[in-house]
Design a protein around this nucleic acid. Sequence first.
RNA 1: AGUCUCGUAGCUCAGUUGGUUAGAGCGCUACACUGAUAAUGUAGAGGUCCGCGGUUCAAAUCCGCGCGAGACUACCA
Length: 1128
Amino acid sequence: MFKEYKNLEIDKITNEIRCFWEKNKIFEKSIIYRNNKKLYVFYEGPPSANGSPGIHHILSRTIKDIFCRYNTLKGQKVTRKAGWDTHGLPVELVVETKLGITKKDIGKKISIYTFNKKCKEAVMRYSNEWNKLSKHLGYWIYLDKPYFTFKTKYIETIWWLLKNIYKKKILYKGYKIQPYSPAAGTGLSSHELNIPGAYKKKSDLTIIVQFKSKKNTLPKKLKKINGDIYLLSWTTTPWTLPSNTALTVGINIDYVVISTYNPYSFSKINIILAKKLIKKVLYKNFFPVSNEKELKEIKQNKIPYLVLNVFKGETLIGSCYEQLIDWFLPYKNKEKAFKIISGNIVNKKIGTGIVHISPTFGEEDFFLSKKNGIPPMLILDKNKIPIPLVDMEGKFIKETPYGFSGKFVKNEYYSYDKRPDKSVDLEIALFLKKLNKVFKIEKYIHSYPHCWRTQKPILYYPLDSWFIKTTSLKKEMLYLNQFINWKPKSTGKKKFGYWLENITDWNLSRSRFWGIPLPIWRTKKGDEEIVIGSIEELINEIEKSVKEGFMSYNPFKNFIIGNMSEKNYNSIDLHKHNLDNIILLSKYKKPMIRESDIIDVWFDSGAMPYAQLHYPFENQFLIDKKKFFPADFICEGVDQTRGWFFTLHTISCILFNSISFKNVISNGLVLDKTGKKMSKSRGNTINPFEIIKKYGPDTIRWYFISNSSPWGNIKFNIEKIENIKKKLFGTLYNVYSFFAIYANIDNFKYKEKEIKLKNRPTIDKWILSELNTLIKKTYNNYNNYEPTKVARKIEVFVIDNLSNWYIRLSRRRFWKGNYTNNKISAYQTLYTCLLTIYKISSPIAPFFMDNFYKNLKNTLEPFESVHLSYYPKYNISTIDKNLELKMSIAKDITSMIFSLRKKEKIKVRQPLKRALILINNFPPKKNFIINIIKKEVNIKHIKFLSNKKMYNFTKKTIKINYKLLGPKFGKNINLINSLISKLNKKEIKNIENVYFFIIKIHDHKICLSKKDVYILTEYMQGWSAICYNGITVALDTNISEDLKKEGLSRELINKIQNIRKYYKYKITDKILLYIETSKFLEKIIKNNKKHICEETLTSELILIKNLKYGIFLYIENKKFKIFLKRNL
RNA sequence: AGUCUCGUAGCUCAGUUGGUUAGAGCGCUACACUGAUAAUGUAGAGGUCCGCGGUUCAAAUCCGCGCGAGACUACCA
């Protein structure tokens, strides 16, 4: 027996299947059973469990699950290990808040040990939520032995990787300009700048200053100009001007030399600025003139200017200028300073098009100057250590002249009572004005980052950091990127590609506490250093140090080298609180202390392919033999492009000269119904658990996948989910129920031999052809990582082809007649369709499909679960495109006849005599189609007519094929079209009968082929007709007396069936039928009695004059009485 | 501010290398059909293909400039 249902309870099914999976370890089996099969490698991007999962995690986890399940179906072994990202600032901030402390207090008020302990506790606080999400969503992943980034084994791999990066000589210590809060005395991470509210509108004093060019270094063109030439440059941070060492121009930007006057001193000057910005810089008091004469007069403070020359920025590159404020000179390479360099940072819309560069206080400035060999403005302090002109409290250094010494560069850094009237920026402006070096002073409002703790503006400040020299690997990384299949392509090519193009060295350092410590020890002077690559190495080094007396004992002496047991590894902790106490011995017997920073958490996650395996200490072959590397597939949100995707790629490129993932889907965001981002502050977030509970995981999964491509943003709309539940799952349920009811009645169990395709009725051949086409298409789309196309194709098949067409047409075969081959064929066909649908849909809707699969499984299909079965193979010989085409024409014709009936107001129950159909080039063998149409639309005769016969009834129109003729005739195409469209019916007919014909344009003869035009037959005179898609259908609307009676008899059948249904009789129940007789009814019944009895399973139909019991019915407004009862 | 993605019916989305009159589903209105169906069919209403300009015989599609939404990066001086 096939299981029958009373109604569809998705919730119940889901729970049952979930229990079934757990109890029978289906997930485990799906891996074990494929033990000797090829591996499909999937990497789980580790989530951080210190926040609870949101609705968007449903999206990415659904996609991940789909491809893991699909590839299992394909017969591959798909292991997937869960992992947790455990380190990082967000955790630390949570703990800080909880303990009511700030960064300064760590190591003072509270020990690093305690702090780290608290972090470790805090990090997993939502892990239960995450596991619950996996479970409820049906996301299959090994939760039992996940990798944790804080575990000793994980850390050991990271160290090994870092040591090998060091060996490649691309790990170095250097300066980086970083956001820094002088008020708080700490550097800030970019994360902290992204805290909402960090960017605030700030009003700054901006000035345009005049850098005097060294004329002999200018291009020839400009040397000829009389007088000094100044480069105008704009800045919002005048306090950085003493640190200026270069100017930047855009090579493709047009610049001009202008002769004019300084608006403050009215001295005559030549200035250089971007052509496009003339109007913005020289507005209000300035006016353009066209010759030297006019330039001479300043009228009522109106200043004339004359454009002398236009040139590309490129020509300025390498030219020099005089230092603007000559208080200091760079301690190193000063001869290379004060040059014009090129850079793409030049904004064409604001400023002057010439950017002032202070490498010590701007990140872009820093990189650009480094690239161009420009020295930063660093001077040597009394200890001969290079320092910038502003100290770490945000003050000008002592040595600064003209009263600037010790002044805060931002007024906000003073306490309120001590804040001076004039800010440093203003003082610098006035100082330069006196020297006649200022062209303009203005206020400017822009958004500027502020320290989230002190609410004061941050500075960009050079700080010590460890870097990986990723810039040196740019080529390799770009090259290897070509071999990654990105979904969508643009993320890989553009977003990721551009990012690689503009790659900067990877800053690994974080001056925080909860993370993997840098395994680097250095002497005080920094002349000797060691990078530790394993615990063994560390222990050995400690031993040396103990011998020399730098350390009193070895804190890790209980660790057994070479013992890979969890117990051994859990016995030691490699976090900062332990490592900072370790002092190592240098080659020249000097003490070395650890570089105090921890490693960027992104390195943790990017190292996950190796660290999850404890490579190379264990599982070495899995990576080296490329068994578990690179991944076949990863998937995360598009925001990970510069996050996880990047770090994975970088590490594998550096160390393994390989990509680390072959296919990647970067999914979009989940927005609310109106397209707004979901956020707690907006209050439009959706609880993933509630939504899963309410609609079921399959429905949600299907919704996410079918609604739009996963890489687009999805607007989360509950109504659509409802629709999927009703339409797809409802229909599938109904098709199954239909099958189960009748299969059980006929005791069909798929025990009979499979009926050969050639012996099946055409309708079965058709649906099997469509089914195989579907398998083929879904197979390709899965392989191309296009889940949306898969889901949509399945929807069309299930709803349109299988339910609304195949079953509708085949209905009678299931419930009428004996258990013949025809009937068996119907069962076998429907069975195959259902089983196939369950399999190909199971990656997307794993619960629902498994449930129904299990109901159908039999000796032919022995698998315990659909997820242990195999993806169906499509059979090319079953696909009959011609048949599919014919059927789609039949559908069209049916629709058209319904449409005509509606127009003529003739019910479908009323049989009609005939319909005529005109269609060009209809494939042969029409009978099958004719029979379907006849039954569907209740018409006795369907006739396909040839063109010739129809000639008199039709109107012909002709149109040209633009696609073919357009390229041939270009502009003349419209002329040809007007000529062609004027052809009369006879001429068109002539064209139909030939292959080529000739038309005349302006005495030119043009030869056209029949393919160059479309001929449409549109209309039939005197008939009720309709035309669509090149098909014309005409309906004979005359109703004879006999047809009328037949129609009425059908009306009667319908009424009886409704009563049976109302009485809840079984479909197989036979009945006795009593009808109160009348002339009207006798007329109806007379010729159709047999048919009526057959249709309604009436064993006896009795006409009685006076019927005591019964119900009243109406046909055509005539009242009569009827009584029926079960014939037991 | 820059970069990237997106913008097609009230809603969600298709729309092939540019080519005849831009489509589907949901929703709305009316009618029909139904012994699996909470379905389905037919008809109707509903479009400045975000706007402007360009290339072309021909643009929703290609290019440029805007506008709007989102992400990423952000003192991009």
